[in-house]
Simulated assay, not measured.
Amino acid sequence: MTKKNFEEKNDSKSTVSKVVKGTSPSKIRGKFFKIKVYIGIAISLLVVAILASLLLFSPNAKKESNEAISSVAKKENTSKEAIDTSKASENEKKKEEEIQKLKEQLTSLDSKVSESEKLVDKLKEETAVPKLDIEALRNNDLSSLKGTWRTPSGKEFVINESSELYATGYRDGQKYESTYEITFSKGQGRRNSDTASFGLNPKGIPVGGGYMIAVPRGIVLESAGQYTDQSNTAEDRLVAGQSYPSMLTEPENVYYRVKPDTSKLEEEEKNLAQLQAEREAIKTSLESKEKKNNN
């Protein structure tokens, strides 16, 4: 193959020319049409992309986007505020209910405490043990003698407001009962200046009787010869008999005041103390909650 023949055979122009020469006009037009379509589509996509980019990064787009975000945030905040307000309202209502409940409890306790205090005062009055008032006794006021007096041997004196003494005891195994009228005796009071002496006159009987000495606690009766006071000087006492020495020889026949049963009073005092403690606790809690609620 000569050089000329080789160049002619491999020359591109010669090849294209041959292809063109070997291809029909209709096919050539079809190929160019497709190329134009592809180019048009590519240009359209590029334009859309450019416009989208411009819209996305334009001030108006950003503003609208920010407004949308702000609107969503505002709605969320409004919703949160509504929830918070609802919770606050619920908590406030709950606090008010608690305060109202405490007020009702306090009112109830005030009433109970008042009733208990009245009962305690009444029981104290009923169980009060008067102290012998020597000056009053010497002025014929026998109120401090009122009550029941009993000896260790079982004898009793019951003294009423009418200055009567109702005596019971046993003699030779037999129970006896007597009623005496109490009269103040000045002469017998000279022996013991801190005591008061009385005559005991049997009612309905013209003869008999004796006398009685009221001895306040802490006072020791004066000795009579070899006889000394052997009674319980820590208590108020009554001694009675026919003679002063005989009163000192029989300590088992000394009368001591019978103290009333105070168990009910003690029980009610404990109940009152408990009610007062509960009231104080409720009152403190109420004041604390009202203070917090006002702040």
Results as ranks from 00 to 15, higher is better:
Lys3Val: 12
Glu7Arg: 08
Glu7Leu: 08
Asp11Phe: 03
Lys13Leu: 01
Val16Ser: 15
Lys18Val: 06
Val20Ser: 07
Lys21Val: 09
Pro25Leu: 13
Ser26Ile: 11
Gly30Pro: 05
Gly30Val: 15
Ile35Cys: 03
Ser44Val: 05
Ala49Pro: 07
Leu55Ile: 14
Ser58Phe: 01
Pro59Phe: 01
Ala61Val: 02
Lys63Tyr: 11
Lys63Thr: 13
Lys63Met: 11
Ser65Thr: 06
Ser65Cys: 00
Asn66Trp: 09
Ser71Tyr: 14
Glu76Ala: 15
Glu76Gln: 13
Thr78Pro: 04
Ile83Asp: 13
Lys95Gly: 01
Glu104Met: 15
Gln105Arg: 09
Thr107Glu: 07
Asp110Met: 07
Ser111Tyr: 05
Leu119Glu: 14
Asp121Ala: 15
Lys122Ser: 14
Thr127Leu: 04
Asp133Thr: 02
Asn139Gly: 07
Asp141Cys: 01
Leu142Thr: 10
Ser144Met: 02
Lys146Asp: 13
Arg150Val: 13
Thr151Tyr: 09
Pro152Ile: 01
Ser153Gln: 14
Val158Phe: 08
Thr168Lys: 14
Gly169Cys: 06
Tyr170Cys: 03
Lys175Met: 08
Glu177Pro: 01
Gly187Asp: 11
Gly189Asn: 04
Gly199Asn: 11
Leu200Val: 08
Pro202Gly: 08
Gly204Leu: 01
Ile205Leu: 05
Val220Gly: 00
Leu221Trp: 02
Gly225Trp: 10
Gly225Tyr: 13
Ser231Ala: 10
Thr233Asp: 06
Arg237Lys: 10
Val239Cys: 05
Tyr244Asn: 00
Tyr244Glu: 03
Met247Ile: 04
Pro251Phe: 10
Val254Asn: 13
Glu267Arg: 02
Asn271Pro: 02
Leu272Trp: 03
Gln276Thr: 07
Glu280Met: 03
Asn293Ala: 15
Asn293Pro: 07
Asn293Ile: 02
